[in-house]
Nucleic acid binder design. Structure first.
Length: 241
DNA sequence: GCGACAG
DNA sequence: ATCTTGTCGC
């Protein structure tokens, strides 16, 4: 694997500035989400990406990381980061507008395209059915899933104690995702469809990516990388400005 | 009106 | 997300 490349994360000129604009964009993208499709095959050459973002709100700096793993071995094959200005304030339900410009830049910096992207957050499990994973999938054309660490506002019963046990994540009577036990004795993670894949398949991928820890290897790798990138960006002599 | 609220 | 030391345990 080569050293990670870092690119500037530029917020598009037409990026939403207000809550109303963001809501309008969600309404436009929502019908484009595909909630079904196959899981990637765990064979040599299949690539799965993990993406994550870290912030320095004090300096208005954001750093995103995209890490490519070989789905068959979970070995890291490529890394990229993007650093720029925060694109949007944090508002529950509008997280995509805060994170995606940097995430997209990091993904674009990879020399190869992933067969699937694992996001840190939700996809269809969202008040308006367009969490960041679905938003990213529709705007890039990539297949995506969301694996979140918290249930947000949704309801669920605790799944059984064994790895692989799951229960539906419910919004009213609708199953919008699943609470999945990735390890015995730890809290479940919350899996939802992003784009181009079914819910059962998304759970299969999540379990394949969690051989040792609660959180998928993709997310763990991306998390540590974006933190490193942020630290370098804001360090004296860095690319902080 | 008040609280809750992915990261 | 981020603020934050040591500490219990495999």
């Amino acid at each position: 694997m080569t050293a990670p490349v870092t690119v500037p994360a530029v917020v598009p000129a037409d990026w939403p500035t207000t809550e109303a604009e963001a809501l309008a964009e969600q309404r436009r993208l929502r019908p484009l989400v595909a909630a079904r499709g196959p899981a990637p095959e765990p064979v040599a050459g299949t690539l799965v990406a993990g993406v994550d973002v870290a912030y320095d709100d004090e300096r208005d700096v954001v750093a995103a990381a995209a890490v490519l793993l070989d789905y068959a071995t979970l070995e890291v094959v490529e890394e990229a980061t993007a650093v720029g200005r925060v694109a949007f304030p944090y508002l529950p339900g509008l997280l995509a507008f805060r994170e995606l410009p940097a995430v997209t830049a990091a993904l674009d910096a990879l020399t190869r395209s992933p067969d699937l992207v694992v996001c840190d957050g939700y996809g269809l499990a969202h008040p308006r059915r367009l969490g960041l994973a679905s938003h990213l999938g529709v705007t890039t054309g990539l297949r995506t899933i969301g694996v979140a660490k918290n249930p947000f506002t949704f309801a669920y019963a605790l799944p059984g104690g064994r790895r692989g046990d799951w229960t539906p994540l419910l919004d009213g009577g609708e199953e919008i995702g699943r609470a999945v036990r990735t390890r015995e004795g730890v809290k479940p993670v919350f899996v939802s469809v992003g784009h181009g894949i079914g819910l059962t398949e998304a759970v299969t991928v999540t379990l394949a990516l969690t051989p040792a820890f609660r959180i998928p290897e993709t997310t763990r790798r991306a998390d540590s990388l974006c933190r490193r990138a942020l630290a370098e960006a804001v360090a004296p002599g860095g690319t902080g400005r």
